[in-house]
Amino acid sequence: MSPVLSVRNLSKNFGGIKAVQDVNFDVAKGEFLALIGPNGAGKTTCFNMLNGYLKPNSGGSVQLNGKELLGTPPRKIWRMGVGRTFQITETFLSMTVLENIQMALISHHRRVFDMFSRATRLYVDEAMALLDLVSMSEHAERACSELAYGDLKRLELAIALAHEPALLLMDEPTAGMAPSERIALMALTADIVQREGVSVVFTEHDMDVVFAHSHRILVLNRGELIAEGTGDEIRANPTVQEVYLGGGTLFEDKKEAANA
């Protein structure tokens, strides 16, 4: 089966610094792929090139179901079937939870220039169904600004799924959440992904989350892909241990910063 996403020779220089060098990988349909590595390893740069916020060096290629993504602005990449969530949630705070989803649907159905319909009456059922998917339907009428952080994360997930994407890009989906919440959110994501047949690429610092949910892991260091494999393979990989996972010493969390 041909991959959903195929990344070839992706590189990015900032000034003279090679932030990302010649990265290649594929994502299969329904695959849950984690991108890990120390701070400054190029995860975010990679991500921003996939979603169109950064322009890579010439020569590379990123194809979604055979269509080239590079050089396309973020909004068009979204239209081609890539949903995304942000490290720090981005939602429309002056709207209700339901309206946030409706906005995504309105855009998906290309009705943002409609000046006469009542926005709140459009796609209510579809929006409720999406909220159901993330178990948020009882919050539908609440103002988005009143939500707890964990709920905002779930809302973002529902927004990202509104246009039935083929691929979901999640940047540090569990940042700022308690461990119990993290597992719950990722379990929910994994469940939805499996049912809907979406592929996911996510970056993550919490190794529990990574090992529990990813099908495959890519490890970046200094802009290069240094390892690739299942959780067990990555855990056993001596290079990865050295640059990233560490041996559980005192400043375990900070090891990653050393290489930044």
Binding site: N39, F251, K254, K255, A257, A258, A260
Partner: peptide
């Protein structure tokens, strides 16, 4: 104080 800085500095 230890947010986002290298281990040497944390020490």
């Amino acid at each position: 104080p230890s947010e986002g800085i290298a281990p040497v500095i944390v020490e």
